[in-house]
Design a protein around this nucleic acid. Structure first.
Length: 438
RNA sequence: GCCCCGAUAGUGUAGCGGCCUAUCAUACGGGCCUGUCGAGCCCGUGACAUGGGUUCAAAUCCCGUUCGGGGCGCCA
């Protein structure tokens, strides 16, 4: 009674019906998917069959023996030929009376992770068995949403005249210092994995691209062990010519709003599965100067060195004043990279900004230094050797426009919009301090 | 790099010196059940991360190792 695969019986997608489309087609149909649940009664058995579009119930009359249901394991892949039951009593709303069931591939028992168990597995167990974890729509919804977030971002940038580029991820020098880079062998040379496309974006501004963006991986060799850091993350980077920090901030809030708008329109189902109540936040997002943050901290009785970066504790206090997204602007030069433009009036501050969501930093951006002489002195003040950046500096010597830009952590944005507590949830195969597989 | 915490069946947990022949749920195997849908009921299988030590006695206390969780620093 068991029917094994020969490999030659692979179903054609031409005659396969997606579960979501059941009821719109003929009454005799073929569905394929994973066995999510098995309930065996005396005279009949029920299967819950799942494909990428949804679930339906498959009813098997045991006496007719279209298949030995008892031999089936959860999460095995089957093909079901059968008839649509017109008025189904199933809670899935869709029911097929099986005339034939073909086992396409069996799942071993026990499952290392049961995606539909009543007990929730730990994140570590889930990530070790990500292919099973992702079979649960609660998990796969995260990545459908992330995909839509990125589409909303791309759509907005394309509409605003940006060109998408791909810059190298194997690079010869650091963008902001040397400590946090992964080494790679590049034939006879020493190379690194790129921590940011910053230098290339700026060179492209000199190249006359005008508005440029990139979505790509960024690598940070920091041994951080937190719920908001990955060693490989997706960076959305833009750079705009003839633009100041305010222009870049406007583009940034536009991008975020477009991402939210897009998932509200396109992903009602996924938002519902995850129980997310997401709302657009009116533009513009509040702008708060760094010096104002120090006052807020002062009011809370926290003394803060004006040359020092804000700590997570500081940001929690500041976040008490703002709900949702807000910008912190005019950061001190001491905590910003060499390419950040100093403020004309107060050169110890910069024309820079971070986009925050409560206490979490999502984006860092600024107007950039476009004058090569100023850039050289900034290298010196950061203790960097200009010779390491010769290919970069060269682009500034022959007509570099004033320009601004930012880099946004896609997983950070996703975790915030989706209300997830650990950034690893937002990376489909995350790389963290110890995780190199799968 | 620093600091805290943890590791018990496939999964998730209780136990924290003798009452442990280790709890419960879920999963898994068997049986019953004319439509189930977190199915139900009965029976059963299955675990103390690892190496040392303390003790009459260790899942339980101590040390090392490995693995995991969280925080800080750094950042997106």
């Amino acid at each position: 009674m068991k029917q094994y695969i020969t490999g030659l019986e692979s179903p054609s997608s031409m005659k396969r019906t997606l579960i979501a489309e059941i009821g719109t087609n003929e009454a005799i149909l073929t569905v394929c998917g994973w066995v999510q649940d098995i309930r065996i009664l005396k005279n009949l058995s029920f299967l819950v069959l799942r494909d990428e579009s949804g679930v339906c119930q498959v009813t098997v009359k045991n006496l007719e023996k279209p298949f030995d249901v008892a031999s089936l394991n959860r999460e095995s892949v089957i093909l079901v030929d059968g008839m649509l039951v017109p008025q189904s009593q199933s809670k899935t709303g869709k029911e097929i009376l099986a005339s034939r069931i073909t086992l396409l591939n069996a799942a071993k028992v026990p499952l290392p992770l049961a995606p539909f168990d009543k007990v929730q597995a730990d994140l570590d167990t889930r990530l070790n068995n990500r292919f099973l974890d992702l079979r649960n729509p609660r998990i796969s919804s995260i990545f459908r949403l992330k995909s839509s977030i990125l589409w909303g971002i791309r759509n907005f940038l394309m509409q605003n005249g940006f060109v998408e580029v791909q810059t190298p991820k194997i690079v010869a020098s650091a963008t902001e210092g040397g400590a946090n880079l992964f080494n790679v062998k590049y034939f006879e040379d020493e190379a690194y994995l790129s921590q940011s496309p910053q230098l290339y974006k700026e060179i492209l501004i000199s190249a006359g691209v005008g508005r440029v963006f990139e979505v790509g991986p960024a690598f940070r060799a920091e041994k951080h062990n937190t719920v908001i850091h990955l060693n490989e993350f997706t960076s959305v980077d833009i750079e705009m010519a003839f633009a100041d920090a305010e222009d870049a901030m406007r583009m940034l809030e536009g991008v975020v709003d477009s991402a939210i708008q897009n998932i509200l329109e396109a992903n009602r189902k996924e938002l519902e599965i995850l129980g997310i109540d997401l709302k657009r936040q009116p533009l513009p997002y509040p702008r708060v100067e760094f010096s104002e943050c120090l006052k807020i901290l002062g009011d809370a009785g926290i003394k803060h060195d004006p040359e020092e970066d804000l700590t997570p504790e500081d940001l929690r206090v500041i976040a008490g004043r703002y709900s949702g997204f807000y910008f912190i602007t005019k950061w001190p030069a001491s905590v910003r990279p060499f390419y950040t433009m100093p403020d004309h009036e107060n050169p110890e501050f910069t024309n820079s900004f971070d986009l925050q969501y409560q206490e979490k930093e999502i984006t860092s951006g600024a107007q950039r230094v476009h004058d090569p002489a100023m850039l050289r002195s900034r290298f010196a003040s950061k203790g960097l050797n200009p010779e390491d950046f010769d290919f970069y500096l060269k682009a500034f010597e022959y007509g570099m426009p004033p320009h601004s830009g930012w880099g946004l952590g896609l997983e950070r944005l996703a975790m915030i919009l989706l209300g997830l507590k650990n950034i690893r949830e937002c990376a489909i195969f995350p790389r963290d301090r110890t995780r190199l597989k799968p």
